[in-house]
């Protein structure tokens, strides 16, 4: 083993000793990091599952333009061509009045006999417009809808299923709140972790002075504190993961069945890789917190 290895073994031992010597303040650090990550993680889980749902309904992200009754044949194809040229439009499918009726018949089944009594076709022709990948948001839909609205021959618009737009807004809201909350909580957590480490530095200032007097370098003195923060952070991350999992299992049975019917797949928890990110994120928070505590005018 090299001298570096021995030093690192010593650093780890010193860090653990440091945590053990102040279990309460260390515990507060761990719990703080844990709570932050539970909140941020809950938003991440929610968002992840909401977006998954969106993927399933990606096809519904379309705009239907209902046309005036005199538009048919050449005019219909011309209109279709013009819509195709609108930026953000991926594909356009023209549905004539007859086709619309066919579809309606097929969907209503035996009840369609009722329609036989009608001598006119009440269904309008339409253009079904699907959006390109990058336009699949409330704003994108809005922009495309605006462009179509202005075209002659278009009577009314329906933006796919209304809920999609609302859903998109909800996803954006959850993401915004999650990111905002995450940033604020992360900053607060950094402060708390930094304070904990600062307390540790203060409690051990005699030791640090003596270390420095016998020739300890600055990294030698500081590394155990950085490790201490890192370990507290990782512990906080693991705690958050455990709480999130418990929460997930607790809340899930309430709507799992309904979701499965609707989406065809049950909501999922973090993958092992994503779970690792939570723990690493905690470790990072702890590390940054202690680095902040050690920077500034403090000298070992």
């Amino acid at each position: 083993m090299t001298r570096t290895t021995y030093k690192w073994l010593l650093f780890v031992r010193t860090a653990i000793r440091g945590i053990a010597s102040s279990p309460v303040t260390s515990g507060i650090s761990v719990v703080t990091i844990g709570v932050t990550l539970v909140l941020v993680g809950a938003f991440a889980l929610l968002l992840q599952n909401m977006e998954e749902l969106l993927d399933q309904f990606g096809d519904d992200l379309r705009v239907t333009a209902y046309l005036e009754s005199e538009v048919s044949g050449e005019a219909l194809r011309g209109l279709e061509q013009r819509v195709r040229e609108i930026p953000g439009v991926e594909d356009v499918e023209a549905v004539s009045q007859d086709e619309a009726l066919e579809r309606f018949r097929a969907s209503v089944g035996s009840g369609s006999a009722l329609l036989d009594g009608l001598d006119i076709n009440p269904l309008p022709a339409s253009l079904e417009i699907s959006l390109s990948e990058d336009q699949r948001s409330a704003e994108g839909m809005e922009a495309v809808a605006k462009a179509i609205e202005g075209l002659a021959g278009v009577e009314s618009l329906s933006s796919g299923r209304d809920w999609v737009e609302g859903y998109l807004r909800a996803v954006a809201l959850v993401r915004g709140v999650g990111v905002g909350l995450g940033v604020i909580l992360a900053l607060a957590t950094l402060l708390i972790v930094a304070n904990t480490i600062r307390l540790g530095v203060f409690a051990r200032r005699d030791e640090l002075e003596i270390l420095s007097l016998v020739g300890a370098s600055r990294p030698f003195v500081q590394t155990p504190f950085l490790l201490e923060g890192l370990l507290q952070g990782a512990a906080g991350g693991a705690l958050a993961l455990a709480l999130l999992f418990a929460l997930f299992r607790l809340v899930l049975p309430g709507f799992e069945f309904g979701l499965e019917l609707l989406v065809g797949s049950a909501p999922r928890f973090f993958s092992p890789g994503e779970a690792l990110i939570v723990v690493v994120g905690g470790a990072g928070l702890g590390l940054f917190g202690s680095a902040a505590a050690l920077s500034g005018d403090w000298r070992p």
């Binding site: 001298r3 021995y6 010593l10």
Partner: peptide, 29 residues
């Protein structure tokens, strides 16, 4: 350096106190 007030760590044993001077150089345990 032998300090007038010794500067020993009260929470460490005699052995650990003396070892400090070697540990800072990464001497094998």
């Amino acid at each position: 350096v032998v300090f007038q007030d010794f500067k020993l760590l009260p929470r460490r044993t005699v052995e650990e106190n003396v070892a400090l001077a070697l540990q800072v150089t990464g001497t094998p345990p």
